[in-house]
Computed example of a mutant assay.
Amino acid sequence: MRIMVECSGSRSVVGLAAAASPMLNMETLRQKHRFSKVTTTRRGGGSGLPVGDDGGGEEEGVVVILGATGTGKSKLSIDIGKSFPVEVINSDKMQVYDGYDITTNKMTVAERRGVLHHLLGELENDVELSPLGFRSLASRRIAAIQSRKRLPVVAGGSNSYVHALMAKKYDAENANIAGDGGLNYRSCLLWVDVGWEALVMQLDRRVDDMVAMGMVEELAVNFNRSRAEQGIYKGIEKAIGVPEFDKFFLNHSPNTWLTTGNCTKKMKKEYKSAVEEIKLNTRVLARNQVAKIECLISAAGWNIRRLDATEVVRKRINGVQKKEVEMEWERTVLRPAMADVGNFVRRGSNGGASSVGSEFWSSNYALSAMKQAAGGGGSGVAHQKF
């Protein structure tokens, strides 16, 4: 028996688990979409976070991928990881927490293509990870990655995290970008950017895709009436989608919604309103993210390479063949990014040779990859969705 729930044209499938129980099992959703829960050791101390070790300008350097939500940051990090010996450090402040995998748009295990990720779904929700806390955690991961002669790639949309990590003089009490004292690491800074009109269409479509994947079911499973009534949110509960649908579920019991095939006129209207509010708030987030990146350039003086993925998104939205979309991605984003990262790694500190993946550079594959990245032919890199 499968129960079909339809609201405002959105069709969701609730399987046998829902039929057997009024609450859908979260593990069912996790297995369905192949997300991997990362088991971590809980840390002691009042904040639950390690203290100290705030970086120190590791000479091997760090690649940082910035951009608004939905522009292709994760995709680029994986594509780079197929040609360079990298490990990715997530800098999305919602994706650092375990749970809400669809709502926070976490990459599935398959989408990671074997590239090792750090701080992705690692923290429990009772820990509030501040920018200073992220600086401490991420700097330790960077040191560990560099000790393995691999390249750290920081990717995510939370620019407050990135600024805290990369600023040489970060002041948690007064995060003055203009007075941050320069960069804490030798770095290659990449910005995947998309024109606003195309980005809005991309973000709206992504919300619809997430709904189709089971986002609302996930939100229903995690609904907390006390939280919704008080309007107090912490950690991952601040993710776009949680507050919006809390209001919906206050009026329409999640149990009833999951197990009933019929929607009233009022329910359909409020359902549609919640989805539209998610889209609006996602656009606001994207605007703020771009503004912060522009501030890092203008006020802090960060030298950030802009990679324009607008045509990639336009072609994708307009239903252009996948092969043509991938070719546009290679031409406008991947090749220039690969060339920058290649030069950055080979140059090393103070203009010397880098020790990152020395065996990589001696391989024929590496020489071929760099040649392709410089502009000759396809890169041979696997492609994933944004």
Rank of each mutant, 00 (worst) to 15 (best):
G301M: 13
I304L: 12
C295E: 11
G241M: 01
K323Q: 11
R287T: 11
R316T: 02
E276T: 10
E294N: 14
V313E: 00
Q321C: 14
N281M: 08
E294C: 15
E277D: 15
R314P: 03
V320Q: 03
L296Q: 14
N255G: 15
V242I: 13
Y271W: 09
V313M: 02
L258F: 06
R283T: 06
N281K: 13
L296K: 11
V312T: 05
A299P: 10
N303K: 12
V275W: 04
I317V: 08
C263E: 07
E294G: 15
Q289S: 07
A291P: 11
F248N: 00
N262A: 12
I317N: 07
K238C: 09
R283I: 12
K247V: 06
L296S: 10
E311W: 00
I240W: 03
P254N: 00
W302C: 07
A286V: 11
A299V: 09
V320Y: 01
D246H: 07
A239V: 11
G301N: 12
T282V: 08
M327A: 12
G261N: 08
A239H: 06
R316K: 10
N251L: 14
L296V: 07
L258W: 02
E270Q: 13
A309Y: 06
Q289P: 07
K322I: 08
K266S: 14
K269P: 07
F249C: 04
E276P: 10
G261T: 08
F245S: 03
W329R: 08
A300Y: 09
W329E: 00
P254H: 01
R283E: 04
D308R: 08
Y271N: 02
I293D: 08
M327I: 03
K268M: 09
N251T: 15
T310L: 01
